[in-house]
Design a protein around this nucleic acid. Structure first.
Lengths: 211, 211
DNA sequence: CCTATTTCATACCTAATGGTACAAAAATCA
DNA sequence: TGATTTTTGTACCATTAGGTATGAAATAGG
């Protein structure tokens, strides 16, 4: 593999994409201007366009990067704990750690908090949002399946339906973060929800048939 | 009360504000242009500015209108039902009815789905978002207090903490609506969550002390 | 009927936005 | 070293954005 022909880029594409993600995360898609993105990456406009395409492509690429990292971390947090109680606690605490990790404080989740606004107008963005939501549901459901297999929760628990409830708590934590709620209060919300779900034995076939 | 001096307005301010709300609801704050707002209201630009102020003031007024209507309807739905099961079912179903009531289909909640993106940049918008979230939490908590008083749920249930879990489900339903989830699936999510909360006896002091 | 007052409608303004042309710079290959 | 290729950086472009000046229109008061 010989080095490429022309003048070598001065930027690192992955790092630049990370900076793009951070910029969109704070400002949202339509509020972030090209000048913002230029400043965030340190690149100039033509380089940005050459590397990523137009503004929307940058946003989509940033969302994909986010989803990848999110899934990796959730996998780690959820499946690294032996007890389902600990796994769910790690999920909630890990989400909060990300939501409060911005330089300028509380920024929530880039997909839930910024893509949702655009979802009505752009099918590609809506698809990305859906993908993030679906990914969360599915990975939590997989962890619940393991808990069933290990006898930590009743077999009557419906993994996917229960996961959707837990995922919903995570979504709201993201929104609430951005609304200015204190981290301690959100931690309590996450713990309360997880404890209640486990106390109820999750969403069960019985509870479903009630309605 | 004699009629006002000059030329009478041709628009109805309340109706115009309703149209503004609909426009912001679908497109979001920064994505909705002045031209969009002019078209939605049928008013011309100077009249819009005369009636409401600048674009941000229009958005804030629309959010306030939304919150007022939302609270009124939630009061009706939550306190119109005698049993807490029915009250929570009405809450979830009522939320979905609103989230799917747009002309162009699924639009979710204007506060959760559009104000969240702007919340990091504008304190006034963030405050409105917080107010909506807080209002939901509080009215649900009040309904749970009544259920405790009427012996329908255990007195160990913490109304506010339980309400925050239920409110979180509603938030996520709004986001999920906008992401393209089917209404039937969201109905199931709402029923599942409500049933599980009641099955667990809500968030209790006991569950809290576990953590 | 004339004046005062308020709204309406057109047209306009400035600034900012997303996107690009073009030439200089930096590398490889012959 | 010279030709080729790719990136860089400046400067620019057309469009759209939010917001406003201005005069005509419509009402009440005198």
């Amino acid at each position: 593999m010989s080095p490429p022909r022309g003048r070598p880029p001065t930027y690192d594409r992955d790092e630049a994409l990370g900076r793009l993600l951070a910029a969109f995360w704070e400002k949202g898609y339509s509020t972030a201007t090209l000048d913002d993105l230029v400043e965030a990456t340190g690149m100039n406009r033509p380089s940005l366009y050459g590397a990523f395409g137009d503004k929307k492509a940058m946003y989509l690429a940033a969302l994909d990067l986010f989803r990848g990292g999110m899934l990796q971390q959730m996998e780690h947090l959820l499946f690294g704990a032996a007890r389902i109680e600990d796994a769910l606690a790690a999920l909630m605490e890990g989400a909060l750690a990300v939501y409060f990790s911005g330089e300028n404080g509380a920024r929530g989740c880039v997909a839930i908090c910024t893509a949702t606004a655009e979802a009505t107008l752009d099918p590609d963005i809506r698809e990305r949002l859906h993908l993030v939501i679906q990914s969360i549901d599915e990975i939590v459901a997989r962890r619940l399946e393991r808990a069933i297999a290990e006898g930590q929760v009743p077999a009557s628990l419906d993994p996917m339906r229960t996961a959707r409830v837990l995922g919903s708590i995570v979504h709201s934590m993201a929104v609430r973060t951005r609304s200015g709620e204190a981290r301690a209060d959100l931690g309590a919300l996450g713990r309360d929800a997880a404890a209640m779900v486990l106390a109820a034995g999750g969403v069960t076939a019985a509870a479903r048939s009630l309605n």
